[in-house]
Simulated assay, not measured.
Amino acid sequence: MFIEREALKRLTYQKYGDSPTIKSYTKWKLFEENSPLKLPTEAKGGEVPIKGHIVLSGSDVEFSLPGGVELSEGTLGLSQPEESRILGFHFYALRKTYRLRITRDLVEPLVIVSHLSANAFISHHISIEAENVRAPIIIYDLTKEGTKSLVVELKAKNAELEVLTVGRHSSLSHYLLRASLGGGTRVKAFTVISAGEMSHHREDYSLEGAKSELILRGMPIAIGSSVDYLTNVLQYGERSKSETRVHGFSYENGWTVHRGVAKVLESARNSSSGVISQVTIMDEGSLGVSVPMLEVDTGEIESAFHSSAVRQFDEDALFYLRSRGLDSDEAMSLFVHGIGEALSSHLERLRSKARSNVRELIEGLL
C-alpha cells in the first residue's frame, strides 16, 4: 500500500485539466509547497481539545475503545496510492494503519480524532467494518498547523450507521472518506467543515447492495479561508436510494466550492437519486461555486433530480439585523459566526447527554 519516491513523482493531482466543464478548485500548489517531500513526516502529539476512543495526534496514537469494537492493523483496500498525487503523498508519509471492527450495536458514538499542531506532513488512516449492527460514529478532523491527510475507509453490510464528520482547520487539510455500502445498509451522514488555508474534503459512497440507502448533508464554511468539498455517489444496487444536500457559506474573501456527483448505473434498477447544491456568498470578494452532476444509466428509475444555486446573502435578513442597530459588517459577522455557535451547542449537547446519538444532532441541523 505504500509508495516509492520515484513512483510518486509520476503522479498528477487529477486526471482532468481545467476544461470548461471540469475545473480544479483546490489550490494544489499549496500542497506541493508543503508536501512530504519538503516537510518532516513525523511530529510529536499536541494538546488535543477533544477526547476520543481513538486519538491520532501527530505521530502519536491513543486508544480507549468501547466494548463491541475490535482493533487490528491494515486497511480495507478501498483507496490506492496510484490514484492521485495527493493520495500518493498520503501513503508516502503514512507510518501505520488501523482497522476497527464493530461487532455489536453501539449506544453512544464511537469517537475518532485526527489532530495535527506541528509544521509537518502527517498521514492518518482508519478503516471501519460494520455488519449487522447499528452504530453512531463521530470523526473530528483537526488541523492547526502543517499539512494533514486523513483517509477513512468504511465497509458496511446490513448495518444502520450515523456518521458525523467535523472538520476544523487552520492550515492545509486533505480528507477522504470512502465507503462501500452492502445490501440492507442505511447510512445517514452529516459533514460540517470550518475551512483552513486550503481544505480539500472528499466523500465517496458506493451503494453496492440492494436496498442500500444514503442520506448525506454537508455544510462547508469558509471565512477568510478555502474549501473544496467533493461528494461522489455511485449506485449499483437495485432499489438503492441516495440524497445529497449541501449548503455552503463563504465570507471575508472566503472560497467555498461544492462539486457533487450522483451516478445510477444500469444495474441499479428502480432506484432513486438526487443532488441539491447551494452556496451563499456573504459579501463582496468571496467566491461560491456549486457544481452538481447527475447521470442515470437505466430507464427503470424511481426518481432522479439535481439542482444548483449560488446566491447572495438574504437582504431581508440583513435589513432586520441592521434595524436592530448593527451595521452591515456586524450583521453578517453575527449571522456567519452564529452558524458556528449553533453547531457547537449541538455538539456539546451530544457529548454531554447520556445515551445520546448522532441522529439527534443530524436531525437538529437539517
Rank of each mutant, 00 (worst) to 15 (best):
I50L: 13
V48K: 08
L56V: 06
L71F: 13
E70R: 01
G68F: 02
V55L: 12
F63T: 08
H53V: 04
D60T: 01
S59D: 02
T75Y: 10
F63D: 11
K51S: 15
S72F: 14
L56D: 09
E62D: 14
G67K: 10
S57V: 09
S59L: 00
F63R: 14
L56R: 07
H53R: 04
L65Y: 10
P49M: 08
G67C: 00
P66E: 13
V69F: 11
K51Q: 15
V61E: 12
L71C: 13
V61L: 07
F63Y: 14
E62F: 12
I50E: 03
L71P: 15
V55K: 10
I54A: 09
G68R: 00
G67E: 14
K51L: 13
F63N: 12
S59H: 03
V55G: 09
L71T: 08
G67N: 14
L65Q: 09
E70M: 05
H53D: 15
D60K: 11
G68N: 04
K51T: 03
D60E: 15
L71H: 11
F63Q: 13
S59P: 01
H53A: 11
G67I: 00
V69H: 01
S57Q: 12
F63K: 13
G74F: 13
P49C: 07
F63S: 15
G52W: 07
P49K: 08
E73G: 15
I50Y: 09
P66S: 13
E73Y: 15
T75C: 06
V69Y: 12
V61R: 02
S59Q: 05
P49R: 09
I50T: 06
S57N: 14
V69K: 02
V55Y: 11
E62I: 00
G74Q: 06
G58V: 00
H53M: 04
V61Q: 14
L65K: 10
V69A: 04
G67F: 05
T75D: 13
G46N: 03
L56A: 03
V69S: 04
G58S: 05
G46S: 03
L56E: 14
K51N: 15
S57G: 05
H53P: 05
F63I: 05
V55D: 06
T75M: 04
P66M: 05
P49G: 08
S57F: 12
G52I: 01
K51R: 12
G52T: 03
G67R: 02
E47Q: 09
H53C: 03
V55A: 15
E47N: 12
E73W: 14
T75R: 11
V55P: 09
G68P: 03
H53E: 11
H53F: 13
V69R: 02
V61I: 13
L65M: 10
G46H: 06
E47S: 12
P49N: 05
G58Q: 10
G67D: 15
G58H: 07
E62R: 15
G58Y: 09
